[in-house]
Design a binder for these strands. Structure first.
Lengths: 231, 231
DNA sequence: AATTTGTGTGACACATCCGTGACAGCATCA
DNA sequence: TGATGCTGTCACGGATGTGTCACACAAATT
């Protein structure tokens, strides 16, 4: 399964670290935020698959934050697990009514946390959005993992597919090799940066018969960009 | 979605009440029974879409009851979720061999229960009775549990049948082995992921004489896809 | 022009994934 | 009791994808 991205929203640094450690160990990619404001920034930067949201935050409470996200088109499908110190049944019910998918009460073991994270992600998967990307004749359907150039199908390896998928969801923007490794390969794998070049080449070669290799543009000294405009 | 009818078979009244409350809150219609005898009456009165069946019952055990229903033409398509206090791996395996669709172990949260009920119903949703799937010459009739390729009948084992049924209900979409285990085998069953491959093979072999094995496509690194389109 | 820096390309060893046949455990039925 | 059919697991081999390297080539810098 593809690596999942989790955002931790928690004001106490030690707990944050513990959670991050457990998640990374279980091969999730992790982002952190310590309050509502930084959480918004983190979400804007990279939409997570799941948010671990502390109930009590300085300033705006986690509950309000959750309600805010549930109202927003962009974030309403992101899974939310509430993290709370309270044992009150009231809070649990309130949390679930707000739209949290699950809750964990402190103190919790890291294995319990991971189990719940996995369960929630698995549950939200099958109904996942039927993402269908299209750009100027080149189209990619996430549900069937099919890529077609005009009428013809394009045959891609797993990494090439993920790379193209990343490009097509983020066109018209330059990414460094490091950024691409983080987001296509996963953030705690170490591979040479030049490996990106090789996969770019393979992807270009696969798209070439239909002329779509022009969409992948080299920006010397910076990285690559995906665009239908030739420039 | 139409309102679904659930029968609770459970001898302890408090647990029955808890389950009834959770189910009605989630907008299911509910019937209750406290032993095998009253369960038979309840079923005769109104055929449920799903039965929550306690493992231990006074007199006849839930397991025997399940076996009885699975043999009967009328009841064999009714989904069954076993409810058990035991954590024994043995019982889980035995229960699933009997034909239960899923398992819940006490104690369980009401949200977990609802989630599982929904999952099982979703799995067997499209039709329940008169479901008849057809794709490009390959057809599956849920009522008679018969599969035919063109004019010829195809002989399938139970798991192969459920697998094909799952595929035909969800074509043109890639599923991971984990997702397939969840939806074809049941949610908390632990079997090796490679087991999926073996059943894929058996299903392919059964479909091969008519050329329909091409419909099951391997998506390397991700899982499988069912589609009449070649690639 | 010569040098330096960055990128394209082909090759290759290696890891991973998947198809396949075999097998033992189990339930069912004669 | 033995025969049969179904299931989950394993081991093996082949197919495919992967990361890295060396070298060719292009662009910027001197």
């Amino acid at each position: 399964m593809q690596q999942k991205h989790v955002l931790i929203v928690e004001d106490e640094a030690p707990i944050r670290d513990m959670i991050r450690f457990a998640l990374e160990r279980a091969d999730f990619s992790v982002a952190e935020a310590e309050d509502a404001q930084s959480a918004r920034l983190a979400i804007a930067d990279h939409l997570p698959d799941l948010v671990l949201l502390d109930w009590m935050l300085p300033g705006m409470s986690g509950a309000e934050l959750a309600r805010e996200w549930r109202r927003d088109e962009l974030t309403q499908n992101v899974a939310i697990i509430m993290v709370t110190a309270r044992v009150d049944e009231d809070d649990r019910v309130r949390g679930l009514n707000i739209g949290a998918d699950d809750y964990v009460t402190k103190p919790f073991s890291s294995s319990e946390l991971i189990a719940r994270v996995r369960a929630v992600l698995r549950r939200s998967l099958p109904g996942g959005e039927d993402e269908c990307l299209e750009l100027d004749g080149l189209s990619l359907d996430a549900a069937s993992q099919r890529v077609s150039a005009g009428a013809d199908a394009v045959r891609l390896g797993p990494t090439e597919y993920r790379l193209l998928r990343f490009f097509m969801s983020n066109p018209e923007r330059v990414y460094s090799r490091e950024q691409m490794l983080d987001r296509v390969w996963g953030q705690n794998v170490y591979v040479e940066e030049r490996t990106v070049d090789v996969h770019i080449r393979r992807l270009r070669k696969a798209l070439a018969p239909h002329g779509f290799d022009k969409f992948i543009q080299t920006v010397r000294g910076s990285g690559y960009r995906f665009s239908s405009k030739s420039l």
